[in-house]
């Protein structure tokens, strides 16, 4: 059953916040031809990803919701992509864990912070002109500067509150009873752009949203006001380290044009576009770190 059909026949209690989990492999390649197969696993607070890299090139990934514990989430994320291409854990030369659950990835050879991994992943996804990265993750927000090799030169992370994060978006989606993927487009379907809501704090979101609806706002206007508030909030974070040309956004919110376009408007620059799923940046960076380490060790997969 495809996702659209599944959505149409979903039970009455719709989970509006539920974003699309997905698995992909590059059918034009065969991982068995690769000398070095590495894997990156990003166990975040909301989502987990496993990325397979063959000889330094993205080969496949799986992105899903984080389960009850990190080891299982890591295992399930990896299993999803391995099943799709007939791979076994023994076929992978090196595994790097990242994300908040990175130290709990049982089969990882090394753990690297998500800051370094996001920079490395963004450098691959957006090219070596990427200098400023904004990662809007499930429960935190990071602003990173990197050099042409994807090495971090400056970073700042805010994990004190869920405002401006994927979790915050999920709350709004549920409150408005609108599927999360529609929030962005709907936020532009307003007659005039409303002011940002005064607080992006998810704890106050409910009462403020209800008050706005009572005051005559349409749902789309409330969504627009939230997207604007989230954009203002992350921009203020970015301004702390400064924004350089070569701007790239990673994480789930990169898929929400309602927030992205407002960030671009506030900063006066366009984010670099990519065809690759923005949610896999951390895991991709982790797998690439693994590849570099293996290259350094001169190790190749046993014939």
């Amino acid at each position: 059953m495809n996702a659209q059909v599944a959505e149409a026949v979903a039970p009455e209690k719709k989970e509006f916040w539920r974003w699309q989990e997905n698995t992909w492999v590059d059918e034009s390649k065969d991982w068995r031809d690769a000398k070095i197969v590495t894997c990156g696993i990003d166990v975040g607070s909301v989502s987990s990803q496993a990325v397979i890299v063959c000889d330094g090139e993205l080969y496949g990934y799986n992105s899903m919701r984080t389960g009850n514990n990190s080891p299982d989430s890591a295992k399930n994320a990896l299993q999803g992509v391995m099943d799709k291409c007939g791979m076994k854990l023994e076929d992978i030369t090196y595994v790097v864990g990242t994300g908040y659950g990175r130290v709990n990835v049982p089969f990882a050879h090394k753990a690297i912070t998500e800051i370094a991994c996001h920079a490395r992943g963004a450098n691959y996804m957006g090219g070596n002109k990427v200098r400023t990265i904004l990662d809007m993750g499930g429960q935190d927000c990071k602003a990173i500067h990197c050099d042409e090799k994807g090495k971090v030169t400056n970073f700042l992370m805010n994990d004190k509150c869920a405002a401006g994060t994927g979790r915050g978006m999920e709350v709004i989606s549920d409150l408005m009873q609108i599927p999360i993927g529609e929030l962005g487009p709907r936020s532009f379907d307003v007659r005039e752009e409303p002011e940002a809501v005064s607080s992006v704090c998810v704890v106050f979101a409910k009462s403020e949203a209800l008050a706005l609806l009572k005051a005559g706002y349409t749902k789309n206007m409330v969504i627009a006001a939230y997207c604007q508030a989230m954009a203002e909030r992350v921009v203020s974070l970015l301004e702390r380290i400064g924004v350089e040309e070569g701007f790239f956004i990673t994480g789930g919110i990169a898929k929400n044009p309602g927030v992205v376009k407002r960030i671009e408007r506030l900063l006066g620059i366009q984010a670099i576009d990519t065809q690759i799923d923005s949610q896999i940046a951390g895991a991709l960076g982790a797998a690439l770190f693994g590849y570099t380490l293996m290259q350094k060790q001169g190790a190749a997969k046993a014939a």
Binding site: V152, T153, N154, F155, L156, M157, N158, L237, I241
Partner: peptide
């Protein structure tokens, strides 16, 4: 590398 640790909240920016 410049590493910024801290947060921003309603009362201000607190970073080392």
């Amino acid at each position: 590398m410049i590493a910024n640790y801290g947060y921003k909240d309603g009362s201000g920016d607190y970073y080392i």
